[in-house]
Write a protein that binds this DNA or RNA. Sequence first.
DNA 1: AATAATAATAACAACGTTGTTATTTTATTT
DNA 2: AAATAAAATAACAACGTTGTTATTATTATT
Lengths: 329, 329
Amino acid sequence: MGVTIKDIAKSAGVSYSTVSKALRDSPLVKEPTKKRIIQIANQLGYQPNVAARSLVSKKSFTIGIVWPTIERAAHSALITSINKRLEHHGYTTLISINETRTAIDIFNRYRVDAILVFDDGPERYSSPSSVPIVTYGIAEDPLYPTVDVNRKKAIFYAVDYLCRLGHKKICYIGDLKKRDHLQKEKVEGFKQAVLDCKLETFSGQMIPVNGLEQYDGYVAAKDLLRSEVIPSAIVIGSHDLTRGILQAIHESELSVPEDISIISYDNIPEMNNLVIPFSTVGVPLETITKKLTEVLMDTINNKNKDKEMSRVIYLEPKLHISQSCRPIN
Amino acid sequence: MGVTIKDIAKSAGVSYSTVSKALRDSPLVKEPTKKRIIQIANQLGYQPNVAARSLVSKKSFTIGIVWPTIERAAHSALITSINKRLEHHGYTTLISINETRTAIDIFNRYRVDAILVFDDGPERYSSPSSVPIVTYGIAEDPLYPTVDVNRKKAIFYAVDYLCRLGHKKICYIGDLKKRDHLQKEKVEGFKQAVLDCKLETFSGQMIPVNGLEQYDGYVAAKDLLRSEVIPSAIVIGSHDLTRGILQAIHESELSVPEDISIISYDNIPEMNNLVIPFSTVGVPLETITKKLTEVLMDTINNKNKDKEMSRVIYLEPKLHISQSCRPIN
DNA sequence: AATAATAATAACAACGTTGTTATTTTATTT
DNA sequence: AAATAAAATAACAACGTTGTTATTATTATT
């Protein structure tokens, strides 16, 4: 079974409390003894028992991530980055892919120091959690501190940018369903921009997709390109759609940005494996994870009090200009 | 802070040991008292402290999954299924996406009951882990009990099947690099089958890809279709490649299976969102996760002794015949 | 060399559970 | 109604750790 502090004590001929102090590098134990103890610990492959430790110290130095939507590729990049950042703060990340309610219960049983919820779902989970919760991307009347991207503004910026380049006929390809809050925001941003920029509106300006995968983008774009009036620019609501849309454009023997300008919503800085470097709007992934880590640490250290606890932090999207849009004469 | 058994005891006017028994549904406590205690526990939102519990009982009812390659879509389906199965056995699944060595250490500190490693990497981690380890897909001289798919056989079956349909000119598209053990197996299966079935060999019979993504398949197939001799059938080494290959075939105005037969290696039963229902070879995902769960439970309950501990279980692939292959006259 | 001050180590309680043993309450027998 | 058996509950030790307090060993001061 697992090696304990007492095994080390016996082997070193000291009391177990001395071992505890030595391993935590306390100044209360003499340097040579400390060295000897540490060496024995390594030799025996000692790993401190988290259960025992967190039982007495009421700290686990662990963050639980709730991730029921495990397939979402975008989230996996976020989680990788968060994990790295938390590691630097001395925290361990543990993930549960269970349904949100269940996962929160699990982490409560483990008494982790904080829970980070990644769940796009519209479901409300009024969770009696004694462990503090932070959420990402559920800005609609959240019960907990939330970090979110201002998606409305993002798409607004995209349209505004195209407009300043002189584009008049601009389409939006994305999820138009009312259900998904995150996608709805984007649609609103588009509508607002069309209004504010005094752009032409026309039927078929907003093209729906069935899902957010490459294939869905392909289908939607095929559809669009078959119609008689082709827009001079397209705003794409979600990352994966872009590839499919490009594919469709290529098949129509059109090229980007010569024949058509394209800009996509995206947080991930990896639109590089596409044919041309792509222009995007969105909050850089590292900005998101930096803020999330910050909020988590503040929450743990009780830096935010009372009503402040349930406030939303909207991150400001950035326009990342590359080579997929061109000015119109 | 968290509600403890003592809080409940106070509120119910009984001793905390009675509460413990009541919550574990022990016959040692009278039914009405039990009911009352359980009700109070729910009311207070009590969640048992895993740390305290596993400290005394030496059981955590938790399995740690090591998953450093978080992006691998195929694994996410496996993990989802495993999670569900383990839940039925009363186990909780916790995931770490840290580098394998680190993740194993973490789970050792947590004293989970077993660790399941999903790591394709060829790296050897001679880990001094006091928690038992089970691995998936690292059959090459494994240190721990391992479940693996017989990939060599899988591809063999695919070729054999095509051969029996009368195909003579069969190509393989996949990763040909020597590095990746999993991919190498498949290549060997192909070579073996070509030999055993006395098939024609020709230059350019095995087409390499750069990665295992859809795009890589597209590029490889484009290349193939540009050459003067086009095979009558293609065996595809990995799931995601398939879409790209189909794309390329369509662009060449060929159709499947009329002009060309295609069969793909795949464990996931979801080749449905393709244009036609696809023929595949591989071990069904549920078979894999069933066996993995079995091995995990056996390992925990010490059902496998001594040298048996480090044996490999090769799962037998199944041919799943659908509509992407046709017989040749 | 005896005493005080300090450094190093040991002993012990506590954390929230479970499982075992001890005590009290209730039911049964005479 | 007293004695006994059975049922229900309470008390206590243990798990592996940390932090506090008590003890012992060492050094400094006279």
